[in-house]
Design a protein around this nucleic acid. Structure first.
Ligand SMILES: [Mn+2]
Ligand SMILES: [Mn+2]
Ligand SMILES: [Zn+2]
Ligand SMILES: [Zn+2]
Lengths: 154, 154
DNA sequence: TTCGTAATTTAGAATAATTCTAAATTGCTT
DNA sequence: AAGCAATTTAGAATTATTCTAAATTACGAA
């Protein structure tokens, strides 16, 4: 009967069949909670309130920063479990480190390699005609567009 | 005066300011040579004769297979040098291993994660309108589209 | 509540890809 | 042939990630 102040994260976890452990709740709050934003009834339509793109190391750092005791192994486990349950999606922009995105809807990204930063691009901002037919026996799983950025010349 | 049978690779290397060493020549031949294809005067217009997508490990394996003594470190060095000189480009489709592409023109890719295989998509096969404006102080460096594939259902 | 047990966490080892270091070798120029 | 910078390389180091096996925890049942 004790289910105070967990920001609905326990429910969210249960909903996808994951036990709401202290670690998973904390990580979910960091990922999906609306941080400092004053709580209010201001949904912005279908707008995501907080879209985040994090690496395992970053998320672990944030957790530790908030005095949440959690191992890096658990962060990796959790990121993959969340991804498997459709709570996160993995974005491939760097061969060498994985980014996880709290926005699981179809959309694209700007990527600034110098800072390792991702910025969402609305799906409709890049209209696509139809694609060439995939090789025999294969179907399209997803279409991922990455717009790589560089500093303005001069 | 001895410059037989190197398939023009020495020249190609010199042209970009890289010493034509035994290792670099061999790797260049593997990457840019037209393999088994019968030599002939059949250019296919601007068509690339051999487009390849390789990982360092793959290329190293091929070299060793052809009895070319070269270390993995040199393969990595060479791939990066070739990329730096515009002879190759790196394609990011997998967070965990790097692919290098002999086709340096703007184009896109199908990617089959199960086999780690890349297939080119002609640039014009995916018409793009204009992109949303990049964040302040940044300009677009490249637009990379990866169409991820999965096996046909059933 | 207290158990029993399966799910979860975790420290630390292991793996995989890549880079680094410093010494040996080699490709040009003279 | 000599000199020397460029290149190669073995092996160590680094980084990201996964694995293992033991300790802890969540939770339904008693
Ligand atoms: Mn991967
Ligand atoms: Mn790695
Ligand atoms: Zn995103
Ligand atoms: Zn290609």
């Amino acid at each position: 009967m004790v289910m105070i102040n967990d920001n609905g994260m326990s429910a969210k976890l249960k909903a996808v069949g994951l036990r709401p452990t202290r670690q998973r709740i904390a990580l979910a709050e960091i990922l999906f909670g609306r941080g400092d934003q004053p709580l209010g009834d201001q949904h912005l339509g279908d707008q995501h309130v907080s879209d985040r793109h994090v690496t395992a190391e970053q998320l672990h750092g944030e957790a530790i920063g908030r005095d949440v005791a959690v191992s890096l192994a658990t962060v990796y486990n959790t990121l993959h479990q969340f991804t498997g349950q459709g709570l996160l999606r993995e974005v491939v922009v760097d061969s060498g480190r994985s980014y996880f995105d709290t926005n699981v809807d179809a959309h694209h990204h700007f990527f600034d390699p110098s800072r390792g930063e991702l910025v969402d691009i609305n799906r409709d901002a890049i209209p696509l005609g139809d694609l060439p037919p995939p090789p025999e026996g294969m179907v399209v799983d997803s279409v991922d567009i990455v717009v790589r950025l560089k500093p303005t010349g001069r």
